[in-house]
């Protein structure tokens, strides 16, 4: 037989495992440092208090001596994955993605509400008057399966058409700005399930209509965005969690009492027109509050439709 050299493969395997070890360790936050907070923000009017907190440095004042890092991630799924791998302590998202993570065994809790906003399904196609008018050639753009938009659409599909998965093969996953662009082209994307400010911008265009709104689909009001925190962070630093809740309350007050200055800050953040944002944040149906409403609507529906496991007990979802 051939005489084989042993050393080169050993050196290779040694280096490879060394690299893997270093990479997997750098993924974690150093646990020795108690005074570091990493938050993921999302954009859109539903998350406006976060942009105010960051711009006004409210959290820095609430938590003196802390290092606060704001992360921007592309979507809810990546925020959840970052929290799972320990790169993020706090993230903001809608209730259904939180429930999906919780039901799969993620160790995290909801600790605050953030906003209630109008959401809904917008279309330009004249032949679509109700949900039953969609055909196989129609496409509905929404952020991702399992998102609040997807859940609301399925709820309405079940209510009006008797089949929760009725639209599942018509979905196209697109971030809100892309979805709006696709809708404006009036091509294959015939409808867009979206949230502010995109829903208002789309409805301003002549011929674009709302054929389903979120409240109607869910049957009552619900909190759109909530704050979530990993158990490892909240058990270690309850004072930081309390500080974030306080900061959200202060930011909500600022938006209410100083709409002009808030719109100014937000127009820079969103790179859009200040007057338009001012008009939106003054609306009655955009509410910033730390209360969480409507969780049960989503739990009941998602259990029934199999999006979360029915045997899961959801009593531990709130941080106290």
């Amino acid at each position: 037989m051939f005489k084989q050299k042993v050393l080169p493969p050993i050196i290779f395997l040694f280096l490879l495992s060394g690299i893997l070890f270093i990479v997997s360790c750098s993924g974690k936050n150093d646990t020795g440092d108690n005074k570091k907070l990493v938050i993921a923000e999302q954009f859109g009017l539903a998350y406006a208090p976060l942009q105010i907190i960051r711009a006004d440095k409210i959290l820095d004042k609430e938590l003196p001596g802390w290092e606060i890092k704001w992360e921007k991630l592309v979507n809810t799924a990546s925020i959840r994955e970052a929290m799972l791998s320990g790169n993020l302590d706090v993230g903001f998202m809608a209730i259904p993605p939180f429930l999906i993570g919780y039901s799969n065994g993620m160790k995290w809790k909801m600790f605050t509400g953030l906003s209630s906003v109008p959401v809904g399904l917008v279309t330009w196609k004249d032949s679509i008057k109700t949900l039953s008018d969609f055909t196989d050639n129609d496409r509905i753009a929404l952020p991702q399966p399992g998102s609040i938009q997807h859940m609301l659409l399925s709820m309405a599909a079940e209510k009006h058409l008797g089949n929760a998965g009725y639209f599942d093969n018509m979905l196209i996953t697109m971030a809100h700005p892309d979805g709006m662009n696709a809708l404006l082209q009036k091509k294959d994307v015939t409808a867009h399930f979206t949230s502010p400010p995109f829903i208002m911008q789309e409805l301003k265009i002549p011929g674009f209509r709302l054929i389903l709104n979120g409240k109607e689909a869910a049957g009552s009001d619900f909190t759109f965005a909530v704050g979530t925190v990993t158990d490892s962070f909240s058990s270690k630093s309850p004072e930081a969690v309390a500080a974030i809740i306080n900061a959200i309350k202060k930011a909500s007050e600022i938006i209410k009492n100083e709409p002009d200055r808030s719109a100014e800050i937000l127009s820079v953040e969103y790179q859009s027109d200040k007057e338009e944002i001012l008009e939106y944040i003054k609306r009655d149906d955009i509410i910033y509050s730390t209360e969480i409403n409507g969780t049960d609507i989503f739990i009941d529906y998602m259990k029934k439709s199999g999006y979360v496991k029915p045997e899961i007990n959801f009593t531990g979802i709130y941080y106290k």
Partner: peptide, 25 residues
């Protein structure tokens, strides 16, 4: 993975994407 169910049912990439968003590791 980016498009979704473009062909009506979606291919194997769409399968992966759904597993990701529903956290079915």
């Amino acid at each position: 993975m980016l498009f979704g169910a473009a062909g009506g049912k979606g291919g194997i990439g769409w399968f992966l994407y759904n597993k990701r968003v529903f956290m079915d590791s």
